[in-house]
């Protein structure tokens, strides 16, 4: 009897080991939920600054509903590109730092095949979306930029979810949904951008942090 129990324990261990190896060799699991929270906070600050700036020099709804390039629009576009790039750099930098910290804890490597696969698969839709948005801007299709950023970001997350914690897939679906709502409700781009990149990131980052990291940190 005792023997059988011991034996069953071993087989269970064996199955667990198989599962863990399959998971570890295909998915990069050190993405930090905290980085989502930070990205969200930066996005909200960036959106707030943009709102103040646009409202000070013009009318935000008018700007987002307008098509075409003129002196005022060019000035706003230039400001928004700087603003959004700052948010992006801060968010990426923080996430890199926090992920590096998790990597040590999980015994993973920054340059493992899983990490590289994740970055490549996330970058493809993201770079395509970035170039696409810049081309839209160059024609002055201002109202389409926030929705396309949200939609392409959602696609990037869904694509990336095969190579990391699966849950980010649902964040991707939500970003796409918000992107389409923004597309239909033109003139409110900045609001939906803040909702998608700010609020959603904070909510999701918090959820992920408590689900995967909080216990390990304590």
């Amino acid at each position: 009897m005792h023997d059988k129990v011991l034996c069953m324990g071993n087989h269970l261990e064996e199955l667990k080991e198989i599962r863990s190896m399959m998971q570890k060799s295909t998915r990069f699991i050190s993405l930090s939920g905290l980085s989502g929270i930070f990205a969200g906070v930066y996005a909200l600050i960036g959106a707030f600054v943009a709102y103040q700036y646009l409202e000070f020099y013009g009318n935000i709804r008018q700007f987002f509903a307008s098509v075409g390039l003129n002196t005022l629009n060019n000035k706003f576009i230039f400001f928004l590109i700087i603003d959004a790039s700052t948010v992006l750099v801060l968010a990426l930098g923080t996430s890199f730092f926090l992920t590096a910290r998790n990597i040590k804890k999980n015994n993973e490597s920054m340059f493992s095949p899983t990490a590289i696969r994740l970055v490549i698969n996330m970058m493809i839709p993201l770079v395509v979306g970035g170039v696409f948005s810049l081309i839209l801007l160059s024609y002055g299709y201002i109202g389409l930029v926030a929705p396309s950023m949200l939609i392409f970001y959602g696609l990037a997350l869904i694509n990336a979810s095969s190579y990391t914690i699966r849950d980010i897939r649902y964040l991707g679906y939500l970003e796409i949904l918000i992107g389409f709502i923004a597309l239909l409700d033109s003139g409110n781009g900045l609001f939906y951008w803040s909702l998608g990149f700010g609020v959603l990131h904070i909510v999701y980052g918090t959820y992920m942090y408590f689900k995967y990291e909080y216990k390990k940190d304590a």
Binding site: E14, E17, I18, R19, M21, M22, K24, S25, T26, N107, S109, S112, P113
Partner: peptide, 24 residues
Amino acid sequence: RLGVMSVLMVNESADFSTLKSLLE
């Protein structure tokens, strides 16, 4: 051996150093 097979079942291929670091 179990670990090597598990890794290779879900990856097209794996090189020596990857296997080494995964299996420690």
